[in-house]
């Protein structure tokens, strides 16, 4: 996989599904998206990561042709959202952050009503709806109203609904926010199956684990710009070390004393409750800490994750 920021399309390779150049979204004075460039290729899962308010949803809504572009250029499926909205949207599937299911209608009717917006004949819509309910593990609830369904079921139904038109590109805005671990894992499994079937996916999330699981390539957004882009592994390689040593001490003085380990690590971070030492040789640091008699209450060596990259790039300050 090429690691250049904007990989050029190789000869013979199909054109990217989405191309953005200097893309801007402005709400009055506020710059939500501040001139970003990206390409989304056929068959891949592309992720937008970032803290709340980073501009992820604004970018997604522009790709979905639901929000007008304020500046720069955007091409989706080779067309211009400003003039070809209906033609583009007829080939997209959107899973919005906020559910827009009709709570009073049944599960099945929600799919049929939605299919009718795409002018899919009623009989075809019913057939596809039954297939998708099976895919979403909702077949038993087909005749039930949507309102009493659990959050996970509603998300699965929303994903099924986005697939009813057999889209070329499916856009998922925080698909698993607010779900319990079981529901989240089931959703990941379904999204993975979709990818196997060749459906291109664009995902926003602030769950790093989700991004590592699902995304082939991703960008980390902060304040409307891209702080980094690449595959999860590339990003970890570029912005973090192979391993992280986490040391917890009984007292603050003990922790301060252990700061003398710093020269052994590539980077050190002192948090109120623990010391993080970033290094490719975690075990060596841990052994040295014990040898010097620092006696941490707990000490562990773990692999670097995307979360380490994310926190390094976007900071630990709370964003509200």
């Amino acid at each position: 996989m090429p690691s250049a920021p904007h990989p050029a399309v190789a000869p013979g390779e199909p054109a990217p599904l989405v191309v953005a150049r200097g893309l801007v979204k402005r709400f009055g004075e506020f710059l939500a998206v501040d001139g970003v460039d990206f390409e989304i290729r056929r068959g891949e899962c592309f992720g937008f990561l970032g803290p709340n308010g980073a501009g992820k949803t604004s970018t997604m809504r522009m790709i979905a042709c639901m929000s007008p572009v304020s500046g720069g250029t955007l091409r989706v499926l080779g067309m211009d959202p400003a003039t070809d909205g209906p033609a583009i949207r007829s080939r997209l599937g959107l899973v919005p952050q906020e559910d827009s299911l009709d709570l009073e209608l049944t599960v099945l009717d929600n799919l049929i009503v939605y299919a009718r917006y795409f002018d899919i004949p009623r009989a075809v819509a019913r057939e596809r709806a039954m297939e998708l309910l099976d895919f979403a593990q909702l077949t038993e609830r087909a005749r039930d109203r949507v309102e009493p369904l659990s959050g996970g079921m509603k998300r699965r139904l929303t994903i099924a609904r986005a697939l009813v038109s057999r889209p070329d590109l499916i856009i998922l805005d925080e698909p698993t926010t607010g779900l319990d671990p079981q529901a989240r894992h089931l959703l990941w499994d379904r999204l993975y199956r979709l990818k196997q079937e060749g459906v291109t996916q664009v995902v926003t999330t602030h769950y790093m684990e989700e991004a590592e699981q699902l995304c082939d390539r991703l960008v980390i957004m902060d304040h409307g710009r891209f702080a980094a882009e690449g595959s999860p592994r590339e990003l970890i390689g570029r912005y973090s070390t192979r391993e992280v040593v986490e040391l917890r001490f009984a007292t603050h003085d003990d922790q301060t004393e252990a700061l003398s380990l710093a020269p052994m690590a590539q980077r050190i971070e002192a948090l109120p409750d623990r010391l993080l030492l970033y290094s490719d040789e975690g075990d060596a640091i841990l052994t040295e800490a014990h040898r010097r008699g620092y006696a941490p209450v707990s000490g562990l060596v773990r692999r670097s994750t995307l979360e380490d990259v994310f926190l390094r790039l976007t900071g630990r300050t709370l964003v509200d």
């Binding site: 979905a64 909205g85 949207r89 997209l92 009709d102 709570l103 009073e104 002018d119 986005a162």
Partner: peptide, 14 residues
């Protein structure tokens, strides 16, 4: 409340 308009706007409807 139901956000039907937004559901419609994610489809070919303008």
């Amino acid at each position: 409340w139901i956000r039907t308009y937004f559901a419609m706007l994610a489809t070919p409807l303008r």
